[in-house]
Design a protein around this nucleic acid. Structure first.
Lengths: 196, 196
DNA sequence: GAATTTAATGAACGATGATTCATATGAACG
DNA sequence: CGTTCATATGAATCATCGTTCATTAAATTC
């Protein structure tokens, strides 16, 4: 027996989109269920027909926004034979992705203390760190990159990229393409005179 | 006529310290006046004898924590004749300062949308950006650094350093000294084979 | 040691917000 | 139509929080 919606109820996705806008611009605690309801043209009651609670709504929102996040890791799991290009591709893609999802990241940054964020963050750091480390190791093996502490340098590259994202989200500065270029250049060459 | 406290009332500084702990670990909105009061062994009423409101308390806390922030800019206003060492010193000092004030920064990051944060942030970015840019320009003039878009590269260096701070605050990872070393190394040499 | 001044208390107030539920409404089906 | 069912509503409920203020009490003054 098919359940046919009887009054073409607003779908969850519409609510989640509205909640993302509100949470990211005003913060989780500061956004009320009434505001979310109003912004999708529903009553509060209708929200509770779809989500057990405000927290559940937020969790579903995060799940919804991160369901494509495997792209970020899967796409770069293969080693590849050109480490320089691999790093370039990774930085481009990762920054592009982060800028596209800046509303979500804005929530992640602001609510980074929420308990259910911890495992997500941990997993993210681990996967990205590994990707960068592998590229670096491959580059060193091929003689393209200098010898280095790959763990350490990978962490710094990760930090730099997060810093660039912060620049966008918090300081409101930066164009993805340009930042991507500049940061890659800096990471590869440094600022010393003797660099390539 | 001197006003002598009659029951050796807890000084503001003690309250501000407690509030810093609570705000930074739990967030501004999520921290209640009762919690602050309890954690200094006072009643809510006593808090309101010292601060007009919760927001006023928070503002005073920020003022109190940033009253030494001029160190960060004043100390590096002089050009200096060794740009490499100047950059090193700046990065060391700035990261050290940031790590020392990580509770405050945690509030800044989390509450970055609060209207009264905007000018503070703007001023901070501008001053730090100028310092880095000047060092880079001096380095290029002396032939120690390669030719580059100083505006651009200074912004990336600033971003990298903020990213390192984020690593500490959000991801809970990193030791100041080590991060300072690694990042400086990366910024100077990059990862390419032909670098120094 | 009474009077006065200063500071502390915490219950009470008013506002707000998450959540619930009794009620209403429209669609589907006979 | 009338019955049934899914859905929507929003006032009521319950809890929390910022803020106030009547009351208490220590210290100081005379």
């Amino acid at each position: 027996m098919k359940k046919v919606p009887q009054r073409a109820g607003a779908p969850k996705s519409k609510i989640l989109k509205a909640a993302l806008d509100l949470f990211s611009s005003g913060g989780y605690s500061e956004t009320t269920m009434s505001e979310i309801a109003r912004s999708v043209g529903l009553s509060v009651g209708a929200l509770y027909l779809r989500f057990r609670s405000k927290e559940e709504l937020c969790l579903e929102l995060i799940r919804d926004q991160t369901n494509d996040s495997d792209e970020l890791t899967d796409r770069f799991r293969k080693p590849g034979d050109d480490p320089l290009q691999a790093l370039r591709d990774y930085m481009d893609f990762s920054l592009e992705y982060a800028f596209k999802k800046k509303q979500l990241l804005s929530i992640f940054i602001r609510e980074f203390r929420l308990p259910f964020m911890v495992p997500l963050r941990k997993k993210f750091l681990a996967s990205q760190h590994k990707i960068i480390k592998d590229i670096l190791a491959a580059g060193t093996a091929k003689g393209i990159f200098r010898p280095m502490d790959h763990d350490d340098v990978a962490l710094m590259i990760f930090a730099s990229m997060r810093g660039a994202v912060l620049l966008k989200i918090v300081f409101g500065i930066g164009d993805v393409k340009k930042i991507s270029d500049s940061l890659f250049q800096l990471v590869i060459c440094g600022i010393g005179k003797d660099s390539k």
